[in-house]
Design a binder for these strands. Structure first.
Length: 947
RNA sequence: GCCGAAAUGGCGGAACUGGUAGACGCGCUGGACUCAAAAUCCAGUGACCCUAAAAGUCGUGUGGGUUCGACUCCCACUUUCGGCACCA
């Protein structure tokens, strides 16, 4: 028998055409059917193309979307591109290719790859964030944020005009609004202000506002750097020093929503791990602001502490180097070191724990209760951006304060008597207060409340709930982002553009070098910058702007009157299932929730949370193979590569790991991974700059040509990101060409649970390919003709089918997709054993498989003379009676250890089981005549005999 | 440093809510078919003990604990991965 070959290339081509022309994945308008919105986190289209890691989530969500569609839901399953961003801009600087061009190309490539995988996206709803039709509404939301403030009393955003009204009537009296700093003024004060003063004052309240914040400034490159452009405290490009520089920046007042972002999470179907991450990011804590008067000069230092109970353990105060009082406090001789500190101390992205540094300002403050002198230090570890930029140092009960005190020999006072349990550290919030006057004898938790109360009584501070979360920086000194729709008038006031002027389009620039003084490249587009009203803002919006609301645009992507129609928003409401990587666990999800809540306050969206259920998919990792390059002195020294086996003979700092293209390596991802002579030759052809290099293993060495036959050099294997930079990207197109898209989809699912990370490994794919062949062969007779039998299926055949339907239906609903593939394999194996070719079994199985393998099942559906597309047919349901077995396999254990398997009829009663089990010869021999102490019987499950 | 996740045969993984550890697949071994190979099919496959079978012992990163019973729950630790804003 010659089995009929499944021609995946031809079938896939035909299916794609059919689906496209019939528009079977288009979600037209609204419907009476129940809605289901399945969303993927849209990708940033990088130059490396889609790799096999991306589709893991896309295939999962596609399976759910297809199942829901077959179940009769009106399904919204869209895709788009997060198209603004730094990589395209960096690429443009390197190659001269404009970001618009490279982004366009990358998007086209991504879309084609996504289509090849057979994902059922409605491409007519595609959203691309860098298109003016889209970012017009990103700008529009920004303007709304600008025009609103957060009213704490009303617990929602309100128009800034309302606030102005109140200022006119009663000044700041009775206004409870989220702000940068609390201000007090009268209606009279307000009336006497100039327009510029009013403008500045309102910035204190707007949800989109301007403030000074510190950026990573690189003098040598003349530009501001993102955190990931900095490595080891210097710029990744060129290794130049980076310093903190204050700059006027746009920011969003996300902190106004802290409490709601925290509270509303309760109702969401997200993993606890993810919720915990968000909670920690919001970081709500109850603490206390405490004032320390300076010994001389009349100023006071306000500190914030979550541990006011330790107030009697204070042995120093510490200010951030940028603290406004720092300069004033420092004697002339110290000014120089202060300035140096401001520049270098908070060297960004430098997470290596250094020994604490700082210096004594020479001044003292007075303790609010004891009036004792407390030295004021300037310390690098205190951050200006958090709290008040000043702390009270309690080295007895804070680890960082302790490290600082030890370094500078400051007294360490103990004010808590800890309970003696193991593992308690000095920061533990447990124990009894000592050496603390009125707090003595109190438990820590009570002492915190008491301390706050006492501090308030003596008027030296007040209790305060703070959130760790900070307002979000919204300015980028970059070209490839949404222009901020603001013009500055002659007084320097920020004037928002009128909504009718949107979109404010990004002008075309040919050179993307930074502007003068670290300004955005946009500042060089003079004709664009200068308008009759004044100069335009040249900063652009950050990457997260466009992605903070794209899920709403999919609901009504071509609307030109609003970001989406009221009807569409009312119908689609929110995302029912959102799948994406953990890397967005806090950033993107926090900003999106914030924007959504803001739009809810304004009455534009009907829900206060955008994503009902969220699942994080794991990463598919790649294998990174590298060889060790020995760094040698001298300009003419030959490059020397050494085998991984002898790397430990050299000091680490003399070795550089050079990633090697995965294709050159033999036995990759194993201890035997190595380059043979052939591999070395390929490597040198690929990296000509290493021509003439010498290679050395544990026995011998030399340059290519001089190396002995059979020479190998071991490479270093590790598991890590799949990335262009490690040359280990696997393109799904290659896999699809060889095995077909269905096989690729099923194999990705078969690899393991969706939320787990795992390395990509082609070794198992043959199993899935064989399974599909077996499945396909069931539909053909010995002569190679398509053949289904109309005879009534047997009970056994139906049982096999219905058990599979039940397992797969339930497992898709809880996204356990790897076990679904196993279930299909079991089903096909069993049906083949019965040589089943019945229509009534094989067609429901085909429908059941359609969400996983959309091409082959569509092909079979067509051959079987069924009408229309299988994907618009219905999803099979199981009959519970057909999934049950008539007997039970009881494991019988003695003292918890399985000794026998007992097969009994399901109808047997509990008493019959209890007596029957003791009669079994396999069990009798273990009892040796002694009566059991106890028999534990879980009906339908197991029997355990205790002796 | 902080936060989160994970660890099960040679490999990817399965095990519902504390109830038969290793489903399914890869790989490997043996066999059938073939002149031969590929493909396909059949059988076996955690380790140890044993000629073999039967039976048994050990076994889910490490060390303890709870339980009639632990991959699953609790405590401590190790390693790996992901994220981060040195967060008072």
């Amino acid at each position: 028998m010659n089995p009929v070959e499944y021609e995946h290339i031809a079938v896939e081509q035909a299916c794609k055409q059919f689906w496209n022309s019939a528009g079977i994945y288009r979600t037209d308008g609204l419907s009476d059917k129940p809605k289901y919105y399945v969303l993927d986190m849209f990708p940033y289209p990088s130059g490396a193309g889609l790799h096999v890691g991306h589709p893991l989530g896309y295939i999962s969500s596609d399976i759910v979307a297809r199942k829901r569609r077959m179940e009769g839901y009106h399904v919204l399953h869209p895709m788009g591109f997060d198209a603004f961003g730094l990589p395209a801009e960096q690429y443009a600087i390197q190659t001269g290719i404009h970001p618009a061009v490279s982004t366009r190309q990358n998007i086209d490539r991504y879309r084609e790859q996504l289509v090849n995988i057979g994902l059922s996206f409605d491409w007519s709803r595609e959203v691309i964030t860098c298109q003016p039709e889209y970012y017009r509404w990103t700008q529009w939301i920004f303007l709304q944020l600008f025009h609103h403030y957060y009213d704490i009393a009303a617990n929602r955003a309100l128009p800034i005009a309302k606030l102005v009204e109140r200022f006119e009537q009663g000044g700041s009296q009775g206004v409870h609004a989220s702000c940068s700093e609390p201000l007090r003024f009268s209606a009279e004060d307000w009336k006497n202000m100039t327009s510029k003063e009013r403008d500045e004052l309102l910035m204190n309240y707007r949800l989109a506002f301007r403030r000074i914040s510190h950026v990573n400034w690189c003098e040598a490159l003349g530009t501001v750097l993102a955190n990931d452009e900095i490595k080891d405290g210097v710029s990744e490009r060129g290794g130049h020093p980076v310093e903190k520089k204050p700059m006027m920046q746009w920011a969003l007042r996300i902190t106004a929503y802290s409490e709601r972002l925290l509270h509303d999470m309760e109702s969401l179907d997200w993993s606890e791990a993810l919720k915990t991450m968000q909670r920690n990011w919001i970081g709500k804590s109850r603490g206390c602001a405490i004032f320390f008067d300076l010994e001389v000069g009349g100023e006071r230092i306000e500190v914030y502490s979550t541990r006011p109970d330790t107030i009697f353990g204070v042995s120093f105060l510490a200010l951030a180097p940028e603290h406004p009082l720092a300069e004033q406090l420092c004697a002339d001789g110290l000014m120089h070191s202060l300035q140096e500190y401001c520049k270098l101390a908070n060297s960004p992205a430098d997470r290596e724990r250094k020994s604490p540094s700082g210096f004594f300002s020479g001044k003292y403050a007075l303790h609010p209760f004891t009036n004792e002198r407390v030295p004021v230090w300037i310390a690098e570890y205190v951050l200006i951006e958090y709290g008040t930029g000043a702390i009270m140092g309690v080295p007895g009960h804070d680890l960082r304060d302790e490290a600082f005190a030890k370094k500078f020999a400051l007294p360490i006072l103990k004010v808590i008597d800890f309970p003696g349990h193991a593992g308690a550290d000095i920061e533990e919030k447990a124990g009894v207060m000592v050496n603390s006057r009125f707090l003595d004898g109190l438990e820590v938790s009570n002492a915190i409340d008491r301390a706050i109360a006492e501090i308030e009584v003596v008027g030296r501070g007040y209790g305060k709930t703070v959130y760790k979360m900070r307002d979000a920086n919204f300015s980028r000194q970059r070209y490839w982002g949404e222009p901020i729709p603001v013009v500055y008038n002659d007084k320097g006031c920020a004037m928002p553009l009128d909504e009718s002027k949107l979109p404010l389009e990004l002008p075309h620039l040919t050179s993307l070098e930074p502007g003068r003084g670290g300004k955005s490249p946009l500042s060089r587009a003079e004709e664009w910058v200068q308008t009759s009203q004044g100069d335009r803002e040249t900063d652009t919006m950050p990457g997260y702007a466009g992605s903070s609301w794209y899920f709403l645009r999919y609901m009504d992507p071509h609307n030109t009157n609003s970001f989406a129609s009221k009807e569409a928003l009312a119908y689609w409401r929110d995302v029912d299932l959102y799948i994406g990587g953990t890397e967005h666990a806090v950033g993107h999800l926090m900003y999106s929730r914030f924007w959504h809540k803001f739009l809810f306050d304004l009455g534009y969206v009907p829900t206060f949370e955008p994503f009902k259920k969220l699942v994080n998919q794991g990463m598919i990792q790649g294998v990174i193979e590298s060889i060790y390059l020995l760094k040698q002195e001298g300009a003419n020294a030959n490059n020397l590569f050494i085998s991984a086996t002898i790397a430990d003979r050299y000091p680490v700092e003399q070795l550089a790991k050079i990633p090697v293209h995965l294709d050159f390596v033999e036995d990759a991802n194993s201890p035997a991974a190595h380059l043979s002579l052939e591999g070395i030759e390929k490597f040198l052809r690929w990296r000509p700059e290493f021509a003439g290099s010498h290679f050395l293993n544990e026995h011998e060495g030399g340059a290519l040509g001089g190396l002995p036959p059979g020479f190998t050099i071991k490479t270093h294997s590790e598991i890590g990101k799949m990335s262009k930079r490690y040359h280990n990207v696997v393109n799904p197109d290659d896999v699809i060409r060889e095995y077909g898209a269905d096989c690729f989809r099923m194999y990705e699912m078969f690899l393991g649970p969706i939320e787990q990370s795992k390395p990509w490994d082609m070794h198992g794919i043959d199993g899935v390919a064989k399974f599909l062949k077996k499945y396909f062969a069931m539909f053909f007779d010995e002569g190679g003709h398509f053949h289904l039998v109309d005879a009534e299926p047997t009970r056994e055949e139906l049982q096999i089918l219905h058990q599979c339907i039940k397992k797969v239906s339930q497992d898709i609903d809880c996204l356990s997709l790897n076990t679904c593939v196993s279930a299909f394999m079991i089903c096909v194996n069993e049906l083949r054993r019965l040589q089943c070719s019945k229509r009534g079994v094989l067609l429901p199985l085909t429908q059941l498989m359609a969400p996983f393998a959309p091409f082959i099942t569509e092909h079979i559906w067509g051959l079987s003379d069924s009408k229309g597309s299988i994907h618009l047919s219905c999803y099979p349901r199981w009959d519970e009676a057909l999934t049950e077995r008539s007997e039970v396999h009881y494991p019988v254990s003695i003292n918890g250890k399985k000794r026998h398997e007992w097969i009994v009829s399901k109808s047997l009663g509990e008493e019959e089981l209890r007596t029957g089990v003791l009669e079994l010869p396999e069990i009798k021999k273990w009892l040796s005549g002694v009566a059991p102490k106890k028999i534990i019987l879980v009906p339908g499950r197991m029997i355990n005999i205790v002796v």
